[in-house]
Design a protein around this nucleic acid. Sequence first.
DNA 1: CGTGAGATTGATGCAAGTCAACGACCGTGG
DNA 2: CCACGGTCGTTGACTTGCATCAATCTCACG
Lengths: 216, 216
Amino acid sequence: MLNQTTSNAAEKNWQDRNPGRVLPAKSVLYHQGDEAAHFYRVNSGIVMIYRLLEDSKRQITGFCTAGDFFGLSPDENYHETAVTVGTSNVAGFTMNDVSRDPELQRELFTRTCDRLEDAQNMMMTLSKKSAGEKVAAFLVMLVKRQKRRAGESEESFDIRLPMSRLDIADYLGLTIETVSRRLTILKTEGIIELPSRHTARVCRLNRLESLAGALA
Amino acid sequence: MLNQTTSNAAEKNWQDRNPGRVLPAKSVLYHQGDEAAHFYRVNSGIVMIYRLLEDSKRQITGFCTAGDFFGLSPDENYHETAVTVGTSNVAGFTMNDVSRDPELQRELFTRTCDRLEDAQNMMMTLSKKSAGEKVAAFLVMLVKRQKRRAGESEESFDIRLPMSRLDIADYLGLTIETVSRRLTILKTEGIIELPSRHTARVCRLNRLESLAGALA
DNA sequence: CGTGAGATTGATGCAAGTCAACGACCGTGG
DNA sequence: CCACGGTCGTTGACTTGCATCAATCTCACG
């Protein structure tokens, strides 16, 4: 329905027109409540988007990776906070840039639709999946994302977990304890290994996928 | 950031250009998996959007009311099902219509951003709120939506609940029993009355709002 | 090497799900 | 018009998965 331009030429193109700037880990792009002046695109790295409730409960609404846009606001202020997880390259835009650039406009719209799609899938995950399914699905997502860049086709994958356990918990709607427990269960069953705090090795991807639960 | 055209003139305009067609309750606009040929706008009534998992768990991702767009797909097929809840007027569009009509294009984009916003708020609700908070928040949402049309300023409001208890449950990520129990608790505490299955009278709106839990 | 934040592991409690029975309403047909 | 059947909703008893509370562990950094 929305024919995306996925050619390499187009991808190069958007980066060239706005090379962005490099930010160290944990840089805040904007805070919830700030005046919404720009929106952004991730050129490389990961940016974490979250919302805080008054009682300081936090929901991470997404981890944005290369190509994802974030920071659009329906009104004058941001409704969320954006922070880099690792070192990242991020380009800023204004709505003026968009009106000048039909290509950017198309890209922005399709990406926004994709994010809506993701958000709605996440609604399913958050409300219908068990803790075990959530953690498995999270790991599968990371494999899928990181496979793109590496492009290998083995049966086991080393994936990076640049975010803390608390971040994972706040993304999946769980507690750190539950995330930890589910990870050790997966380790015990030989489905993954945990060489270090921020690395996981998926040994049985298909087992993991089946544990991730039913799909749409 | 996205300056919406909320003038009455503009609203009249979009309806005139595509008057849509009237559908009875429970009409299916499209099924999950169907080829995605059109997208739609609600002119009047309510359209319910949901996703089904293979194991038949269902998540209602939204109740669309006048002005809302739905049925955009990131690829060739719909990822969700759309059904009218009550009698509704719905207009169909294609991406060609969009490229021909800059006004529609703008409207579609801002509405899509709004829906993304809603979806992300819903993620918070689904994962961080208790059953009581969810039900209260749901009722408050209905009051807000239905107040727009009526425009009165009393302290108690009759609201219609055109959807079934199961629909409410699948929207909030609860069971019918829990929804029912929370409603009777609210009734017992004199915050609402339930004159009929599909009507609720909110007596203490501010009490209800405080029960709906913390906001962003 | 310490030291402290982050991660794991264990013991216990509770909110919501599940299972089951009953009640109320609505449309249909006698 | 009312009696009936079936769907939808309510209420109650019980179960359970995850949160909570509380140690302990570990490893990244000075």
